Amino acid sequence: MPLPQAVLREATDRRLLEEVVTRGRVTRAELAAATGLSKPTVSEAVRRLTESGLLEATGAQETGRRGRVGTFYELGPSAGWVLAVEVGKSGVRAWSADLAGAVLREHERPAGVRGDVEAVAAALRSVASDAVDQAGEGVLRAVAVSMANPVDPETHDVIAVPASPFPEGLLSPAEILVGTVTAPVLVDNDVNLAALAEQRAGGATGVSSFAYVYVGAGLGVGLYIGDRLVRGAHGLAGEIGYLPGAGRGTLATELAAGIGGAGARSNDVATALRMLDDGDTETIGRAVARAITSITAVVDPELVLLGGPVGCHPALLEPVRAALPPSPTRLEYGRLGTLASLHGATYSALEHARTAAVRVMSD
């Protein structure tokens, strides 16, 4: 049964929009050549995209043939923008980006005292309000929020887990931003978003099965198996901190105690970084290696990437490699560093924004 014309138009428009985003500035003839679509189909789609404001004609290109001139098209001023936000123990940081993903402005607010939920909410509102004010008349098409806590994949609610290193992050970004933004608010776990970013434009590009191991105030893993992000039925896949440690506690509590002393509830990032600076790598290296050993035994990924403020430390990779049993799985650093989750939030927002913009145009 053939697909409805509206569905075909939407798919065509989205494909051409993505091509313009990738190439920056392009003619209809170049779009036809790149996509394999007929010239009449491309011309009609470009007309729709231009009339909607997603594209604009920006100049002529001499084709080299007498009487023939091509018109360049690029993203239009009405295409809009997205907001990517990261909410964590260090505070709230964000950036706004155009629909091509180019960062326009950066925003940041410091963290409040531990456990102060309202301070986190106020920082989130403030960052979003600043971004909207500075954008002027541009259309905000999506907001993606990275949370340093698990997120239910169905309800998008932040999930409370025992001994969370970020208890003040148990809030609802969508509810907090009511009245501040009108765009859809997308919420996801920071480690999942970091894995998404590494898969799109980082160390896992072209790798279908990999694990992104985050080491910071907590431990977590983002899993891509067969080119699909594994979230679990309740959004709790990858909570490796709850694996058994070498003693009676969990891997997370054992590592926290090794870094901050007995009774530490989460990893003291500053102390962990000082330990690694001083060459004291055994405690952290062995804990991370135990986590990776469990991951590789269960899912056998092609690649494991280390990330997070502690996981990215240049002294950590080799001690972890040395502590791992022989395995065909490669171990490397993530390429996007401590900004990986913010990059991931940007990709999430862009994907939603581009799809929604074309769908609205097709309605």
Rank of each mutant, 00 (worst) to 15 (best):
T205W: 11
S129Y: 02
P173A: 11
L170F: 12
V215H: 11
L170I: 08
E239V: 07
G136S: 12
D190P: 09
F210Y: 10
P173Y: 08
E168C: 03
G169A: 04
L170W: 09
G112R: 14
G220T: 02
E118F: 11
N149C: 13
V158F: 14
Q199V: 05
A122V: 06
H156N: 08
G203Q: 01
L243P: 13
Q199C: 07
P153C: 06
A142C: 09
A135P: 05
P167V: 04
A233E: 15
Y242T: 05
V213H: 10
A174S: 14
N149A: 14
P150A: 01
A211K: 05
D188A: 02
V143R: 10
L170G: 11
G222N: 02
V181T: 07
P153K: 12
A128H: 06
M147I: 13
A144E: 00
A148H: 13
V161F: 07
D152I: 04
A148N: 06
G112Q: 08
V230Q: 10
G241Y: 08
G206T: 02
I225T: 14
Y214N: 11
V213R: 09
P173R: 12
D227E: 05
D188N: 10
S164H: 00
V113M: 04
P110M: 01
D188E: 07
I159K: 06
A160I: 11
A144S: 02
